[in-house]
């Protein structure tokens, strides 16, 4: 554990909780892509299956349980409790275009051919692109609520902080996992456009709207 990894995890946690609180307080999931949330639920499920097979630390297990619970909680709020507020007309990204290629890639580029390892790798590839339906939705509606912008910024920052963590781990403990590093870089690049808008607009008190 180092400061970059901890900041990344906390940023990730903040993002997930922000989303839950936003939906709960406003009683609405308008502007949130249900498809991205479905992808994140798949990501956490396939990655954290190791809750049952390997123990790293109380911290790790606790966070995994929180991420899984919050992710399914978000799906419940979006697709059951506040379903009438879900803006499915603008959530039109075809997620099979992300699900299938990630699955194929996880069979081609993987460290070891075991079921658990392929599922873990799949979760890494899918996570890298899971935000695309949400970004597509923002670009279609041309705007995002400020709280949604904060959510996206926290979620994007998490993998960027993990990149610093991997650089740190490379020098301090010779840790080098190219699968997660390349996927993490791709994931972070996808947010760059949004980061720019966030810094130039939202941080200056303006609403995020596209020209």
């Amino acid at each position: 554990m180092n400061i970059f990894r901890l900041s990344g995890d906390l940023s990730h946690l903040l993002a997930i909780l922000l989303l839950l609180v936003k939906i709960w307080k406003t009683r609405s999931c308008a502007g949130i892509s249900g498809k991205s949330q479905i992808l994140f639920a798949i990501v956490y499920t396939t990655r954290y299956l190791d809750l049952f097979t390997s123990f790293v630390s109380v911290y790790n297990s606790f966070m995994k349980v929180v991420f899984l619970t919050a992710s399914y909680g978000t799906l419940y709020l979006m697709f059951f409790k506040f379903k009438p507020t879900y803006d499915h007309n603008h959530d039109s990204f075809r997620i099979l275009y992300l699900i299938i290629p990630s699955l194929v890639l996880s069979f081609i580029i993987v460290h070891v051919y075991t079921v658990m390892e392929i599922l873990w790798t799949y979760s890494i590839y899918l996570e890298a692109v899971a935000i695309m339906p949400q970004l597509f939705m923002v670009s279609r509606t041309g705007e995002a609520e400020t709280i949604t912008s904060h959510y996206l910024f926290a979620l994007g920052s998490y993998r960027a902080l993990y990149i610093l963590n991997w650089i740190y781990r490379y020098y301090t403990e010779d840790f080098l996992d190219m699968i997660v590093i390349i996927a993490g870089i791709v994931q972070t690049i996808l947010y760059c456009d949004f980061f720019y808008l966030y810094i130039t607009k939202v941080l200056k008190g303006k609403r995020l709207s596209l020209p």
């Binding site: 990894r5 995890d9 990730h12 990655r47 190791d50 390997s54 790293v56 630390s57 790790n60 966070m63 995994k64 991420f67 460290h111 070891v112 390892e117 873990w120 993990y162 963590n165 010779d174 840790f175 080098l176 996992d177 190219m178 997660v180």
Partner: peptide, 10 residues
């Protein structure tokens, strides 16, 4: 060993 198969990150 260049990577750990026990994934210790989240």
């Amino acid at each position: 060993e260049s990577f750990k198969l026990q994934h210790d990150e989240l």
